[in-house]
Amino acid sequence: MNPDLEVVQIRRGESFKAWAHGYPFHTVRWHFHPEYEIHHVVATTGHYFVGDFIGEFEPGNLVLTGPNLPHNWVSDVPAGASVPLRGRVVQFSQEFIADATAALPELAGCENILELSRRGALFSTATAKLAAPVLAELVEAQGVRRIALFMELIDILSRAADVRTLTSASYLPDPSGFMSAGVNKALAYINANLTEPFSESDLAAIAGRSPSAFSRSFRRHTGMALVQYVNRLRINLACQLLMSEADMPITEICYAAGYNNISNFNRQFLTQKGMSPSRFRALLAENVSAEIAA
């Protein structure tokens, strides 16, 4: 069975994603993503799946999974029952940790545990007890405190003893193969054709599903409707153009980002960024002027 792609949304102004969830939850499924993930079980018992590994978990289970390594934790709870807090999760990209290491060479000390995570790294009960209060505070923290707690967490994991790798030595995740299936194929199409017109029916056909089934699956994959997902990607592209093409008229940026209506473009930009495209550009210009003056 091919895993689903989980689209990890790291919010603007944050370096990584830290969050908690209950059970059942829409991300609790056989899935993968290009980000590293620290996964800590707070409540319930059950079975967990990492690559070709299957094991039993209980509260305190702490695992670091590497990029594109499929995983899932399935809790044993009665049908119809729910758990308000099942686990806490931290997700961060390869680019983030590489850039952080370039700026802070001391982070090179975490390279070994990151390498082990490509096979799934299971930590001891003692390490999980050290990490638990840090994770609990991290999911609620803001500002510089988030960074301090993240560094503390990475330090705990990097210095851990008795780390066990989970998948077999021969197991290699195949994200290109995963992406050829179902909704993953549609997501790849969106990324390759973001500025071109396409409909939900077009994507459903690519995924080999009915429009209604595709719509449900897409929301489960991304946590949002197709229109919201596409608008977010297109506005992010518009921001990149506003930052890199200072002389490009905003109307041209509107069309280059895949919109064919300037009013809709302005409305979507305001919704997502809290300001108009012209205001966004003006603030960028102020920032550049301040740097020159300094």
Rank of each mutant, 00 (worst) to 15 (best):
G223N: 04
L135F: 09
A136P: 02
I190R: 07
F218D: 04
R216Q: 13
A181N: 12
A205D: 12
A148E: 15
I156Y: 00
L122R: 04
D155I: 01
R234E: 08
A169V: 07
L166T: 03
A207L: 10
S215L: 03
P211L: 07
Y171V: 05
G223A: 07
A136H: 12
D155C: 10
I206L: 11
P173Q: 06
T165V: 15
E137V: 05
S244Q: 14
L122P: 00
Y189G: 04
P133I: 10
R164L: 04
Y171Q: 09
A225R: 12
A141F: 06
L157H: 01
I156H: 00
I156M: 00
A246I: 14
L203D: 03
S217T: 12
Q228N: 11
A204D: 09
K185D: 08
L242C: 14
A169H: 07
T165M: 05
V134L: 13
L187K: 02
C239V: 10
I156F: 00
E152F: 02
I154R: 00
R219A: 13
S201C: 05
G177C: 06
P175Y: 12
F214D: 07
F178S: 06
L187N: 01
T167V: 04
A225C: 09
R146L: 02
T195K: 11
R232D: 15
F178T: 06
N191K: 10
M224S: 14
